[in-house]
Simulated scan of single mutants.
Amino acid sequence: MQTHAALILVDVQPDFMPGGSLACHEGDAIVPGADRLLRRRLFRHCVATQDWHPRGHASFASSHVGTQPFQQIPLHGHPQTLWPDHCVQDTAGAALHPAIDWSSLDLILRKGSDTQVDSYSGFRENHGPDGSRPSTGLAGWLRERGVDEVYVAGLARDVCVLWTVQDAQALGFRAHLLWDLTRPVTPDSDEATRATLRAAGIGIVESADSLA
């Protein structure tokens, strides 16, 4: 068991998979591996984040007249990508994926529930009206349990997973991204994602090699 490490599974939800409203490239391919990893109980603590948006969220293109999904607008002084409506609270697309046994989870952290603030990272929300990035409380929760290292997987590799693992490293955790258990919105972003991770000193690992 990884006694001082936690597994963070980011937004493994049907809306981010083929057929979902914001499908990642091959997003469903990570489901069997994520399920196997949870069943192995290699980590003392396992966390899942869950995108959990109210209807009319500020990150939805449908909330801004004359805009289209994937267009960028300024929001609270920072660029905001506008998304298709996705992971709306209490819809099937927002559920944690039903093909995964989630019984070993210690925490489900719902994010993105503030109508005016998007929330990619499991550790901090995006910039809000006052310019800050409020904490979700996850860092403190992990530290209280003696965690100093995290392995991050899930969706999407180039957005919420990337922001989560970057924040983990910035907040003092040894951070690793389980590359084979992530998928991007588009694979065109993979080269830039790898470069960003390397520049930050974040480990890029394969689950079969690092968790054997």
Rank of each mutant, 00 (worst) to 15 (best):
H53D: 01
Q50L: 11
F123Q: 00
Q71L: 14
V10G: 10
S104E: 12
S63F: 06
L197P: 09
L162E: 11
G56M: 01
A199G: 09
P14V: 00
P69W: 10
R183G: 12
T49W: 04
A58R: 12
A192I: 14
D11M: 02
P18G: 04
G122Y: 03
T136M: 06
H53N: 10
D11H: 00
D15R: 01
T49R: 11
G77T: 03
P69H: 02
V185M: 14
K111W: 07
L75R: 11
A156Y: 05
P184H: 01
T182A: 10
C160H: 12
G140T: 08
A94C: 04
A99L: 15
S103I: 05
A5Q: 07
A153Y: 08
R36D: 06
I30T: 10
D118N: 08
T186S: 15
L9R: 11
G56I: 08
G77L: 07
L96A: 05
G93S: 06
S121A: 05
D15L: 07
V185A: 12
D148C: 02
A34Q: 00
A99V: 12
R55W: 02
F173R: 01
R124M: 06
P79K: 12
G56L: 11
A29T: 09
G146R: 05
S62F: 00
D188R: 15
G27H: 05
L142S: 04
M1D: 09
P98S: 09
T182I: 01
S104N: 12
V10I: 02
H53Y: 00
V147D: 10
R39C: 04
D90S: 04
I73L: 13
T136G: 05
P79Y: 09
D180M: 00
I108T: 13
R124N: 06
T182R: 02
R157E: 08
I8G: 08
F70G: 02
Q166L: 15
R143K: 13
P79D: 10
H45Y: 08
E26C: 02
F173I: 01
S104D: 09
A168V: 11
Q166H: 15
D11L: 03
W141C: 00
G128C: 03
R145Y: 02
G172I: 06
H53C: 10
S59I: 08
F123A: 08
G93P: 05
S189D: 14
L7M: 07
F173T: 07
H45L: 01
R133E: 14
P184I: 00
Q89L: 07
S63E: 01
H127T: 15
T193K: 07
G201K: 08
R194T: 08
G122F: 05
L42H: 03
Q71R: 15
A212C: 14
L82V: 13
A200E: 14
Q169L: 13
P79T: 11
D190E: 15
P129V: 13
L107A: 04
E191C: 05
M17G: 12
R44E: 11
D118E: 13
D114A: 10
P74C: 10
L211F: 05
Q116C: 13
V165W: 07
D130E: 13
W102N: 08
T91G: 09
L42Y: 01
D35R: 09
V10H: 02
L177V: 15
A5N: 04
A208Q: 14
P18R: 06
V165F: 07
V88Q: 09
A139S: 14
A5H: 03
G131K: 00
H97V: 04
G146V: 03
L109E: 09
H57I: 05
T81I: 14
H57F: 05
